[in-house]
């Protein structure tokens, strides 16, 4: 999974071979349920993890993960790895669903109650654990290279599920400044992580 997630420079990305989850998702688009199980195995931790980070409620995160995969199955025939990798595609669907959920009043209450809860789950195998740990380290390093204010803005927006207006309000910034920090932060992350692969 880490290979797919890892950012590539634009020219390399275009020649990406379609193995792993990308290929499995394409096969799933032709009704292949076993291929979809491969997609699940490759991406479930990411999908569940980002949902959990945003909504902070294990049960809600599980629902979002399930909805994400069912949606992915439904529209798998439209998946185009030239536009986005399977990982990016699933992350986009999952994050959007998580954000939609968290922006309702009801979920605001639920996430406060469940802030500290974590759920018992499968132990991932060693290789997965190493890859996930590497992902974490790379992202942490990349985030550390941002200015404090860029990091705060990107983190609140993506992990916090906030709109840039809310980010502006929370950080006591003009909206335009919040927008700019999010954008500059993302560009910096792209450049750092893209350059390393």
């Amino acid at each position: 999974m880490a290979d797919v997630v890892r950012l590539r420079s634009r020219s390399v990305r275009r020649r990406e071979d379609h193995s792993g989850p990308d290929d499995a998702l394409r096969r799933a688009g032709r009704g292949d349920e076993d291929a979809f199980a491969e997609v699940y195995d490759a991406c479930a931790s990411m999908v569940y993890g980002i949902a959990l980070r945003v909504v902070r409620d294990p049960q809600m995160a599980e629902d979002i993960a399930q909805e994400t995969f069912v949606e992915a199955w439904r529209v798998a025939a439209r998946f185009d790895p030239e536009v986005a990798s399977a990982t990016t595609w699933l992350a986009t669907i999952a994050h959007r669903k998580a954000v939609d959920r968290v922006r309702s009043e009801e979920s605001h209450r639920a996430r406060e109650q469940n802030e500290q809860r974590r759920v018992a789950a499968d132990e991932p195998d060693t290789a997965e654990r190493v890859e996930e740990a590497l992902d974490r380290v790379r992202v942490r390093e990349a985030l550390a290279a941002l200015t404090d204010s860029q990091r705060e803005a990107v983190t609140l927006a993506y992990y916090g599920g906030r709109t840039y207006r809310e980010v502006a309000h929370l950080l006591d910034l003009p909206e335009g400044t919040a927008k700019t920090r999010i954008r500059d932060g993302l560009i910096r992350l792209r450049d750092i992580m893209g350059g390393k692969s």
């Binding site: 699940y40 479930a44 931790s45 990411m46 993890g49 995969f69 069912v70 996930e132 990107v154 993302l186």
Partner: peptide, 28 residues
């Protein structure tokens, strides 16, 4: 930008509960 966002998502990877897999595969 979405690719960068997916990297931020991957860094949060957390294994879901075991039974989710069966439920997803049954539903699809």
């Amino acid at each position: 930008f979405r690719r960068v966002a997916a990297t931020l998502a991957a860094a949060e990877s957390t294994p879901p509960p075991t039974d989710l897999r069966d439920r997803v595969l049954a539903q699809i």
